[in-house]
Amino acid sequence: MSMIEWLVALLAVAGSLFVLMGSVALVKLPDFYTRLHGPTKATTLGLGALVLSSMAYFNFVKGELSLQQLLIALFLFITAPITAHMLIKAALHLKLDSAEQTSGQQKADL
């Protein structure tokens, strides 16, 4: 395999691992608020790596100019924090229970 193919493979595997970790966070963490951290962070970086992998593949292995994937990254970076913000606001509004060890809960009641 050429260097470029190694790079493509490495980025794809790393990206998948990050997305997997984001999903593990969704299943494993104790309450809604902590679960929200997985998809906002790990998934962003994971998808970023997948996008880079795809760009490396099409531009260097296939040899055709393709920058379309940048749009995925762009829209993702704009929408991910906003989605998280809407979800956590809804959770606060509904007064969802947070894990016992959460400190500063009274601040959320304002």
Binding site: F18, M21, V24, A25, K28, L29, P30, D31, Y33, T34, H37, G38, K41, A42, S98, A99, Q101, T102, S103, G104, Q105, K107, A108
Partner: peptide
């Protein structure tokens, strides 16, 4: 975050901060 997620839940110290 990945390190925290893979660790035990009890060790997490979640908090609200202003």
């Amino acid at each position: 975050v990945i390190r925290l997620v893979l660790g035990p839940n009890k060790k997490l110290r979640p908090a609200f901060v202003m």
